[in-house]
Design a protein around this nucleic acid. Sequence first.
DNA 1: ACGTCATACCGTACATGTACGGAAAAGATT
DNA 2: AATCTTTTCCGTACATGTACGGTATGACGT
Lengths: 214, 214
Amino acid sequence: MQLSVQTRREKQKAELRSELVDAAHKLVQEEGYEGLTIRKLAKRVGYAPMSVYSYFADKQDILFALAEDAFETLAKRIEDHPADDPIEALQVIMTEYAAFGLGNPNEYRTVFMTEKTRPPEGRTFAEMQEGNPLMKVLISRVEACVAAGRLKGDPRAIATMLWAVGHGTISLLITFPFYPFGDQQAFVKRMCDFTLAGLATQDVPPLTETPANC
Amino acid sequence: MQLSVQTRREKQKAELRSELVDAAHKLVQEEGYEGLTIRKLAKRVGYAPMSVYSYFADKQDILFALAEDAFETLAKRIEDHPADDPIEALQVIMTEYAAFGLGNPNEYRTVFMTEKTRPPEGRTFAEMQEGNPLMKVLISRVEACVAAGRLKGDPRAIATMLWAVGHGTISLLITFPFYPFGDQQAFVKRMCDFTLAGLATQDVPPLTETPANC
DNA sequence: ACGTCATACCGTACATGTACGGAAAAGATT
DNA sequence: AATCTTTTCCGTACATGTACGGTATGACGT
């Protein structure tokens, strides 16, 4: 029965944590992203500022929690958006990913453009990417393309390359909104189409595992 | 003669500013990037903390100044690295750019991955990119490729696409050093080759200027 | 020479993230 | 029940970026 006690404890802790996340979410909605401060957040839930640190390692950790929520809805949106053609399915990912990044720049920033001091919440970095639902669905859709003979090569390598292109595109658009990219959507579509077209003509080898001759 | 006075004044101001930049540089070398604080910097040059703000709008502005120095050496290195083959000349840019980003992640971050509140130092954003020496040399080398018939299309569009890919690659490597990209150099080379190969097969249209039907 | 004025520098003050140690409350062990 | 241990929460304190207003120093017009 002591396990049950342990469990209840953890559940309660998780509850308080998500209460904090909710409060943080509201704060951001009401006062904007920079309005989220530890002190305001603590006051919101009736705690002393330092008590927040019982539930989050630091402020980054809170931002990660917020971003994770947002990314979950992105994952859902992608899964609710199937496509008959496997290549189109990849395009959907890129398009939704781009729309998400442009619509949630703060969340995109905290997840993909922030110096990572620690893997948030004990998870390792490898898990964070490999086990990341987004990367998972990306790889699986790439696998579908390979299975259908529309792409050729190592799925994870292909997925990583797509990720690099997609991320480069989005992050530039976010960071330099005034650079004359032309129409943002058009630029995203162009990069996406270009990359998929290029990949279609190649047999992509797996990512090298730091070969010995280096 | 009153212009001379004005000029002398400005020169002196610029001198003090670069003295501050030098001090900042030394501070970073001695204590690391996070050791650079306004107070320490001010103490270093014998000023009160607030006096620093006579020369820099904010801390970001200082970081930009540091980064600019670093990027200047990058530009020099690229220019000192010519290549007979115009495509190879592009590869040199990508390679040097990547090496720079991986070797100077902090500077790369402040210039390319940081929310821009103001165009640093009065320059407009457009200038900052268009007039940016790096983008300039990139465009000119792309133009050389187009002139040589090795690439086809609008040089600025091609350059922007190369930038997006290069930036995506570098920034992922910087942000997720533990993701299994395999060998970093190899990944960079792969992305570069892949993109250039793809571009070689296309006629790249100019970036759309936010067409009216949107 | 003298008042006027811009400029350079600074002192003080505040909001913020967070380190540190303590207190109190809850649970476990005897 | 009593004691010990762990967990939760907090008060205080510090470093940091920076807003605001003040002061003094030197230039300029008269």
